[in-house]
Amino acid sequence: MKARDHDGLSRRGFLAAAGGGAVLAATITIVPLDANADVASTKKAVAAITGGKETKSGRIKIKAPQIAENGRVVPLTMSVESPMTDSDYVKSLHVFVQNNPNPDVASFHFTPDCGAAHVSFRCRMGQTSPVIALAEMSDGTFYQTDVNVKVTIGGCGG
């Protein structure tokens, strides 16, 4: 009786240790790699637009939910501060979701006739991720802002 108990315990102990080890190994090897790949692909997408130019912070306001219950429909509102005159306006606004399979979301190309660089739309998010907005001004400068949105249920299909 005593021996059996001991046997059972040690087996359980061994399984628990093995299982825990496997989970630990999985988190160590997979998660950081994925995150790095997402960061790299987003940086690449941003660099493709800026041509390697430096981006300044500020001027862009992003209105997004802190927690999106459904990643299939995440409402986003973005506006860029600008007088929107013929000589000084926002040329375009590019939106990325870093941890999506493909970080691109949308590009908006404004003209001075818009009066304000302001857009509202709805995007899909596969998982919790920073939402990045990159604005290109008519004088060739770039502004970048990001906001983190937590996603409860992903919406990229599977």
Binding site: V73, V97, D104, V105, F108, H109, T111, V119
Partner: peptide, 10 residues
């Protein structure tokens, strides 16, 4: 206004 969309639009 012109806009280009990726599959990430709902």
């Amino acid at each position: 206004l012109e806009s280009n969309w990726a599959p990430a639009i709902s």
